[in-house]
């Protein structure tokens, strides 16, 4: 990473921290504590299942909300407040600015997820008193959640580079919802005929495949995640995010900052 991208990423991370984005961890900690205590009292044998399901789903939702709402402001807020003027009048290329913003927010989400992951393990330790080797599948689930955040951050940046702060989060949120049904969309496309099949196939491959990145239920039941899936998902997210970021850069390179 070149130095300018690193400096922009560091500033983005610092801005998120000082704007109290990580305060969501307090809400998450309260949620996990309450869940651990309640689950310990009302369920028998399924405490682990409930805590893992609830914990990982909360990690995912908290992070998605942060990725969308901070992500869409990454560029548009800088244009509205004109903070961008004094950055781009320096030897900073527009693609470096986009890349710096992306890594800054992705870094924030990784740190956030690490703290939340510790919270999930703490709640798990409270209800089951010991860890089993299958519990470490939670780490894979957390890694996949981070991969989801990477895609959502790239998409939020893309929408932020041309849309308004009102429409951009709506677009990003709907893509997240549709992306969770990407596998169903592919199944539907395979069954359809004619133009519908072409359109459904195009849509199925265009939307991010979040369903492949969701192994929460699998991990909660103690089922192992194949290594091949980890490799394929990593490659998929790298290619998909790079393509989305390239789109964001292409739009931003041509944009007049009025």
């Amino acid at each position: 990473m070149n130095n300018r991208i690193l400096h922009i990423a560091t500033n983005t991370f610092r801005e998120a921290v000082r704007d109290r984005v990580l305060y969501n961890l307090i809400a998450f900690a309260l949620l996990m504590s309450a869940a651990a205590v309640l689950v310990g009292q009302i369920s028998i044998q399924i405490e682990k299942l409930v805590v893992i399901n609830l914990g990982l789903t909360a990690v995912s939702l908290f992070g998605i909300v942060i990725a969308i709402f901070i992500g869409i402001g990454l560029v548009s807020k800088e244009i509205d407040k004109r903070t961008l003027y004094t950055v781009l009048s320096r030897p900073v290329r527009r693609w470096e600015f986009i890349a710096g913003k992306f890594f800054g927010l992705a870094g924030t989400l990784v740190v956030n997820t690490i703290f939340m992951g510790i919270g999930v393990f703490a709640a798990l330790a409270y209800v089951s008193h010991h860890f089993e080797s299958s519990d470490f599948g939670i780490l894979v689930a957390l890694y996949f959640i981070i991969l989801q955040f990477v895609v959502i951050t790239a998409l939020a940046l893309l929408f932020s580079s041309f849309s308004t702060p009102i429409f951009a989060p709506i677009f990003a949120f709907w893509l997240f919802v549709i992306g969770n049904f990407a596998q169903d969309l592919r199944t539907f496309a395979a069954m359809a005929h004619g133009t519908t099949r072409v359109l459904a196939t195009a849509a199925a491959y265009l939307v991010p495949n979040f369903s492949a990145l969701n192994v929460i239920s699998q991990v909660a039941h103690g089922e192992p995640v194949p290594h091949r899936l980890i490799l394929l998902n990593t490659a998929y997210v790298l290619v998909y995010s790079a393509a989305v970021l390239s789109g964001a850069v292409m739009i931003f390179e041509r944009r007049n900052l009025k």
């Binding site: 801005e15 704007d19 004109r82 903070t83």
Partner: peptide
């Protein structure tokens, strides 16, 4: 661009930074 300086009209800067941090950031860029 490394050899020019620019003050925009009615400037607004990253308000989460102190003046020293802001200048350090711009110096790095």
């Amino acid at each position: 661009k490394a050899q020019i300086g620019f003050l925009p009209e009615q400037p607004y800067f990253y308000d989460h930074l102190t003046a020293r941090e802001l200048l350090k950031y711009y110096g790095q860029l």
